[in-house]
Simulated scan of single mutants.
Amino acid sequence: MSTLQRAFRSTRKAVLSAVVALGVAVGGLIALTAAPAAHADTQICDQYGSTTIQGRYVVQNNRWGTTATQCINVTSSGFQITQADGTATNGGPKSYPSVFYGCHYTNCSPGTNLPAQLSAISSAPTSVSFNYVGNAVYDAAYDIWLDPTPRKDGVNKTEIMVWYHQTSPVQPVGSRVGTANVGGRSWDVWTGNNGSNDVISFVAPSAIGSWNFDVKAFANETINRGMAQSSWYLTSVQAGFEPWQNGAGLAVTSFSSSVNIGGGSTTGGTTTGGTTSGGTTGGSGSPSCKVTVTPQTWAGGYTANVTVANTGSSAVNGWKLGFTLPSGQSITSAWNATVSPSSGSVTASSLSYNAQIPAGGTQSFGFQGTYSGTYAQPAGFTLNGTSCS
């Protein structure tokens, strides 16, 4: 096979648009309407079949580039490709089976607060874990869609692709334009246009199996490169695979996404300060601090975005934020900080790229967790051993 470009990715969008138009013509029966909430092990072989998991995400088969059969097995936490017939023949991939949060061709995930204006988003924590196979030609990509308008259908203006893994000879659309450090990782950066929308791709030098990050970091880098504006809207985030040959066995084993708007979120509230001791000492500076926690909750789970404000007159170099989780809560993942242990008295430690909090400045990190009973806020915040006020 010759070197495969992704220039025909727009074919998928055109086909989907045609399906929507046909549905309207025959009486408003839209083929992309979300199915009822899925139970584990739901099989989907329909070309554009979709269903929901966890009451908040949509899983879609999305076989747009081939007439050959593709089937996915939807679980409570993701999906696996179980059948992937045919070979891509038009230069683009066969499909993009994926799980998403937000709105995709009028199919919106339950309870989503997308589209949301980038300038209003304080953070958009997300995580995904992939399972790879060795007998296929594919890429594993996390898609971030941006548009100047809050559209819920059709092609967006700019597509950000975060490539966790790819096999030869697959490569992004366009050409390599340099490197970037985003989210504490180094990436090869490619830019181009697939004939329908602009594309910026961040390609990992080696395969990433699982990673948590803030979508806002990639949006900001895209803005810095002139391919988006802060007034634009985030419409959806998606994680899945683009197979060219085979693909059976590829799986998204876990996925999470939430979007925090300004100082608030779709659920929950904020907490400030703290009085009890609950951390470890470290770093330098004499901190005075204010801590704001912005949670987003669902049944049995939540994410929390934490902003640490240095209200003192000198910089804090190297920070450790101590706090106490309520009984029944446990942290499962974190971003922009190292957080341990997973329950009880917890310490979040800065990373190399966010270790300084300037006087009057802030740093943010976040974590995802589980809870039993009723969700409650963490308490007892200390910055480098000194209680926040």
Rank of each mutant, 00 (worst) to 15 (best):
F8E: 12
A14S: 12
A14Y: 11
L22T: 04
I30L: 11
A31Y: 05
L32V: 07
A37C: 09
A37K: 11
T42D: 02
D46P: 05
I53G: 07
G55K: 13
V58A: 02
N61G: 06
I72K: 05
G78P: 12
Q80Y: 00
G92P: 03
S95T: 07
F100R: 13
G102K: 13
C108S: 15
C108I: 12
G111V: 09
L114I: 14
Q117K: 15
L118A: 10
S123T: 14
S129G: 12
S129V: 10
A141W: 00
N156S: 08
N156Q: 06
E159G: 00
T167L: 01
A180N: 10
N181C: 00
S186K: 11
S196L: 06
V215F: 08
M227N: 02
S231F: 03
A239E: 03
A248G: 04
G249H: 03
L250G: 01
S254A: 14
S257D: 08
N260H: 15
T272P: 00
T275C: 01
A299Q: 15
Y302W: 11
A304W: 00
S313M: 01
S313T: 15
S313E: 09
A315E: 04
A334R: 03
G344Q: 08
Y353R: 09
G361F: 11
F367K: 08
Y371F: 15
Y371P: 09
P378L: 09
F381N: 13
L383E: 03
N384K: 14
